[in-house]
Amino acid sequence: MFDLSSRSAKLVFGTVAILIAFFLFFPIYWLVISAFKPNAELYRITPTLYPHDPVLTHFATAFGRGNLLQQLRNSLVVSCSAAALNTLLAIYAGYSFAKFRYSGRRLVMVFLLSAQVFPFGLLLISIYPVVTSLGLIDSLAGLTLSYIVFALPVSTYMFYSYFTQVPSEMIEAARADGAGELRIFHTIVLPVSIPAVVTVFLYGFMWSWNDLLYAMTLIVSESKRTIGPGMLLAYLNEVNSDWGGAMAASIAASAPIVVAFAFLQRWFIQGVTAGSVK
C-alpha cells in the first residue's frame, strides 16, 4: 500500500515496525530466557541479555513444587470438555439462526450477545448456587459447565456468521432430494464447516484455559485445582522470590495454547476472519 521507494518512508516504516515488534516480542523473549538463567544470573542488578550459563533447574523446581503437573492435567481435561460442549451447543444454535426464519430469532440472538457486556464475576454470585444445586460444586464437571458462560454467545455468533455464507442452494437441493434436515446438516453443511469448528473449539479452549476467576471460586480441593489459580497461589503473592520457577511454570502453562495455535492457526485465522469481515 505504501510507496516504499523513498528513503524517508522506509525509515518511518522500519522504526514503527521495530518499536511495535519490540514491545510485543521482547516480553516473550525475556520470559523464555529468564527460565533458563541460574539464580545467580537472574538476580543481578545489571541483567544479562541472554543466559550465559543456561540451566534446567527452574523447570525441575517448578514441576517439583506443588502440583503443576496435576494442575495442567486438570486444566486440559476441563478445557477440552468445555470446548467440545461449547462447540456442540453453538454449532446447532448457529445453524438454526442462519438457515431458518422464525419470529424472535433476532431477539434471542441479541439477548445472547448482550450477556457479553455483563461482568462475568457477578454472574458467579448465582452460578455458584446453580452449580451447587446440581451437586457439581468443587468438581471439574461443574467448572466445565460454567465455562459455557464465556464462550457460547460469541461462538454461536461465529457459527451463525459462517453458515450465512454457506449457499442455501446446497441445502435446498438436498431437501429436494428428500434428505432429512439432520442428515443434510451432518453430511452436507458440516463437512464444509471445519474451519469454523476448529475456530470455535480453539476459542472455547482458550477461554477455559485462561480462566482464573471461576476456577478460583468454584474449585476448593487442591487436587482439582487448575493452572490459573495454581499459578496465582504459587507465584503471585507478596513473598514470591522464585522468578525462575515462575517463568518455567509460565512456559509450561502456555505450551498447550502455543501448540494448538501452531497447528490450527491457518484455520483459526480463516474462521475469525469470516466472523469479523463480511
Binding site: L88, Y92, A93, Y95, F100, L122, L124, I125, V130, L152
Partner: peptide
C-alpha cells in the same frame, strides 16, 4: 420445529447459566 430443536440445548444452558444469573443480579 426443527430450528427450535437445534436451538433449545443452547437456550437451556444459556438460560440456566447466563440469563438466570443476570436476572438474579
Amino acid at each position: 420445529r426443527f430450528a427450535l430443536a437445534l436451538l433449545s440445548p443452547a437456550l437451556i444452558v444459556t438460560g440456566l447459566l447466563i440469563l438466570y444469573p443476570m436476572y438474579m443480579v
